[in-house]
Design a binder for these strands. Structure first.
Lengths: 204, 204
DNA sequence: GACTTGGTAAACCGATCTGTTTACCAGTGA
DNA sequence: TCACTGGTAAACAGATCGGTTTACCAAGTC
């Protein structure tokens, strides 16, 4: 994921602008003409750097992957060494993002939903974004030393994506508050491995 | 919700056919021509019954609301009187639906995501569908007699929508298994009102 | 100055979109 | 038999789609 370290200049400029417009307008509903309107970049230039609209969307999603790291993961890690704190920070950060810009969901999943069964490259990138977030939660759960961190991480991932979806549909960040409480409950009542506890068992 | 008791005949036929095609192809990505292709119903007839594509989509979503009742709520109620059982049945039923037809998500939420900020009537119907499901979970939670049934119901709703979304993205019903376990944990560890406990406090 | 590079602006192409119109066909009742 | 009703099939209009082409322009560089 986030393989676009080499993207720069005009290409990056196109991706960032298009990303914003696709975010607001959806993929099928937004044409290349309207996507670049107001950017000062001509359609000719877009097709110089990208072979098709789908290729542009793929590049946008790849870039979005690296954005996720910057906007979500890094601040979460800054919450401290305690993995539980970092998990909670995920929800707080995303809630704050929703509060200041209510229409935003997960661009990758949005794309995946629009292109599932129709364009594999795009749907695959959406799937990867979801899997990446899930993996991050599982990693953090492993650090807590609780039993069955894989399932726990998946459950937290479901709560995260569910609250992201509903906050978008309702236009309200409240689902994150409920989800956060659910995560706390799951973490508090998760079993602790009986013998030979895993590394970093803080024991609380 | 589900105000289409009077819909019948050709109009209902159009709605049911279109519903299926929109389900598979999305709303923006599927034109009226292709939506009715193979149905034996002409576009002329569609526009005799519906003033616009958006009006057709609204009718589809209204019909979908009543479908939800038939396909999800009624079988769940058949699971018995125990509200916890009914909640679990929700997840089992939806998982089984996914297993036999992997691409299906919630049509209302799909529509809401495609038309949020662009067509209020459609987005509103998606919001209503989500609120309706949430309300159903809250009602069941109230019947359990557990404390704070509103929050509990919202959390279960988030788990439900999240697993529905992820099962669609991943093309796999596994998220429902994880979500179901999370629901069980939340229900088992929810506080019981300190005084005057509700009916059926299993205490486990 | 001539030539190249990298870009904008806008016309253009064929396809497809929403929505309308025309022409035709199959029943049905008087 | 004749008119009417409700429908299909298909052409059509105007807009917009993805994508290409043409014309122009500005900045370097020789």
């Amino acid at each position: 994921m986030a393989e676009d370290a080499e993207v720069e200049g005009k290409k990056l400029e196109i991706i960032e602008w298009a990303s914003e417009r696709f975010y607001e307008g959806g993929f099928h509903a937004t044409g290349i003409d309207s996507v670049m309107a107001g950017s000062g970049i001509s359609k000719r230039t877009v097709y110089k750097y990208f072979s098709s609209k789908e290729a542009l969307i793929e590049a946008v999603l790849d870039h979005y992957g690296s954005d996720i790291v910057d906007e979500l993961f890094t601040p979460a890690r800054a919450a401290g060494h305690d993995p539980r704190r970092q998990i909670m920070a995920f929800f707080d950060i995303r809630k704050a993002m929703i509060d200041e810009n209510p229409i935003r969901g997960c661009l990758g999943i949005k794309a995946s939903q629009e292109y599932v069964g129709k364009h594999d490259g795009i749907a695959e990138r959406g799937k990867n974004a979801a899997a990446y977030v899930e993996r991050a939660f599982i990693d953090l759960c492993e650090q807590t030393g609780l039993a069955d961190p894989v399932n726990l991480g998946k459950q937290i991932s479901i709560l995260f994506q569910g609250s992201l979806l509903l906050s978008q549909v309702f236009g309200d960040s409240a689902p994150f508050v409920a989800a956060r409480a659910a995560v706390a409950s799951l973490l508090n009542h998760a079993a602790v491995p009986s013998r030979r506890p895993g590394p970093r068992t803080a024991k609380k």
